[in-house]
Nucleic acid binder design. Structure first.
Lengths: 341, 341
DNA sequence: GCGATTTATGGTAGCGCTATCATTATTCTG
DNA sequence: CAGAATAATGATAGCGCTACCATAAATCGC
């Protein structure tokens, strides 16, 4: 016996068929108006729009997505939200997506490729139009899905490697190298490094490696190195500088993996009566606003986080199809001389 | 004439039917295994899981969502990502959602209820399980949809008002009032306020109003008030403090709408040789880590952003149905005495 | 030991939309 | 003005999954 039609319908929610009936057109015509696709007579469009307004119709994207096997979602996988860098990237992405039909779905991987893989797979269930992730290093499974999927892929932050589709970012190794070169040129010789646990953060590690390479090329070595377990924070930077100076009092410059920690270094200097630059160079990374508002602006490197996010999203929107050629966009960085190194 | 079946299929992507066939069970049984729902014999589950692994099956959530008229998406609408407050909230939400099937979809409203409404409507097209927004003030249309939708709603940050379903946050008016009372108790009498354009930020305005009320109750008034156009920033706070002290040299305390700006005030003090607290009280809001890493920790109020996000998401997960009773959760705040006021 | 529950599985009919093909009215070309 | 292109609309059949109902097998109570 045939079951009652519309058994598990949402009785109150108007569908496209309701709109079409009210406007006196066929379903598909109403659909065309909603999607702004195909030729529609002005009068017809007006009728349909009026019906939509009257019913308060909201399209069902799940149905649309199913029928067209594609969505307007863009999956964004970020390592962290505590680090201001990634909200900045996200802001860039969001800016590029405003006024488009695309919506970002975000996931946080905690710098862990295995978590990244898990979240990626769950995101792929929505048939996203594009996937944005950080870095070029993923699990084999993740990489396989990224390569074979029918969606665009952008890998952000880092460009030292082989992307799946698009990479947007900068060379962190080079930034580290330039930091070392810059500081050597300014006369610093006895280098310290005060960092955080590097295992998780590929890019901090690349900058560290670049720094060491520059020192090596100048015939120098890191005199002292100190690390905190776990994440970076201003307070950690403050304590770390104190610790490293106790162990190696003769340092003339200390490099930090980021501005947050370098700010802590500055605060320790203030507390201990050390004049930055004159007595001890302090160098960060990221170029956060707050560092530039200091009485002595922080010497650091400006990474273009917002630009990276925005560029990546814009690039992805250019074509739904993955082009034959891979694209690598170097957004570069600026050395901010500042007054602390 | 019947059209070719599976005309516009994704030929290469395995479906649940493929899994079921390979496992030798019916579609619906395979579906039950995937969703972990209903009674399944261990042997059957094992067979299905093996088939899933072999095919690399990824469920199609659009189809699932359509069939069950409900999704595992949670819409999150935040005013801004520049202000660290909201990434913190988002982090809390994300933490609560880890290990669940839910995924946050985020939108940024720029503190504009009209943009909020637009994004809300586009999010509702995905039949989200819940909607999270900031504040209790929305457009009439948005409010109507929130009230009549079949999804949970959480309104964050603020609890001074009447929520649709759940509100999680604190009383910003009260926080402003307590700030005033606290500072009056500590002997301050000549108050200045250095803020940003308030129109957009309801909560900063509520704190400001609370502060004035406390001063009034103590028989005092704001002696001076200075505002920047546009958003808040550390540099703006620094310039603003300089400006307000020029206009009203006799101030003994300046209150800022947030820690970012208050940090700028501190930096101006350092630059101008003013000793915080002794010569001039500085008071912020938010309790950011960086302020507590200062040589003199910032006096401020700790708002519990992470907790707000986490609590809200957890509360929403408790039940898919909107309960008869509205819930208001006050996460409170702590006054951090600090050393600057 | 026999009806009553519980456990495990399956058949079928949509969910609301859009791709595809088909059709009719309208405009254009030489 | 015939033939061809273009503009505007429609009928139909799924997209891949799950709600709903039905059935069969295993366990239970007394």
């Amino acid at each position: 016996m045939p079951r009652k039609r519309n058994a598990h319908r949402n009785a109150d929610t108007p569908t496209l068929a309701d709109v079409a009936r009210l406007a006196g057109v066929s379903d598909i015509t109403a659909s065309r108006v909603v999607r702004n696709k195909g030729p529609i007579a002005d009068a017809t469009r007006a009728k349909v729009l009026a019906a939509i307004a009257e019913l308060g119709y909201i399209p069902n994207r799940a149905a649309g997505s199913l029928a067209s096997s594609g969505s307007t979602l863009m999956s964004v996988l970020l390592p962290s939200l505590s680090n201001i860098v990634f909200p900045d990237v996200l802001r860039g992405i969001h800016t590029a997506l405003t006024e488009t039909a695309f919506q970002p779905v975000i996931g946080v991987t905690d710098y862990d490729p295995v978590i990244e893989e898990r979240i990626l797979l769950s995101f792929l269930a929505w048939q996203p139009a594009a996937v944005i992730l950080a870095g070029l290093h993923h699990t084999a499974t993740a990489r396989r899905h990224l390569e074979h999927g029918r969606f665009r892929v952008a890998e952000l932050m880092d460009i030292d490697g082989d992307p799946v589709d698009i990479a947007v970012g900068m060379s962190h190794w080079q930034a580290g190298y330039d930091t070392g070169k810059h500081l050597v040129q300014r006369g610093y010789r006895r280098f310290g490094y005060a960092g955080h646990s590097i295992a998780s953060d590929d890019r901090a590690r690349a900058r560290y490696d670049g720094l060491r390479a520059a020192l090596k090329d100048a015939g120098l070595l890191l005199v002292a190195e100190e690390r905190v377990q776990g994440g970076s924070s201003t307070m950690a930077g403050r304590h770390l500088l104190e610790a490293i100076l106790r162990k190696a009092p003769g340092l003339d410059v200390v490099v930090f993996p980021n501005d947050d920690m370098a700010m802590g270094g500055i605060f320790h200097c203030m507390h201990a009566g050390i004049t930055p630059k004159e007595q001890l160079g302090i160098f960060g990374f990221n170029g956060l606003d707050i560092g530039q508002a200091l009485p002595l602006p922080l010497s650091t490197i400006l990474s273009k986080r917002f630009l990276i996010g925005k560029t990546a999203a814009e690039k992805l929107l250019e074509s739904r199809e993955r082009p034959a050629e891979k694209t690598i966009i170097n957004t570069g960085y600026d050395i901010i001389e500042g007054a602390t190194a």
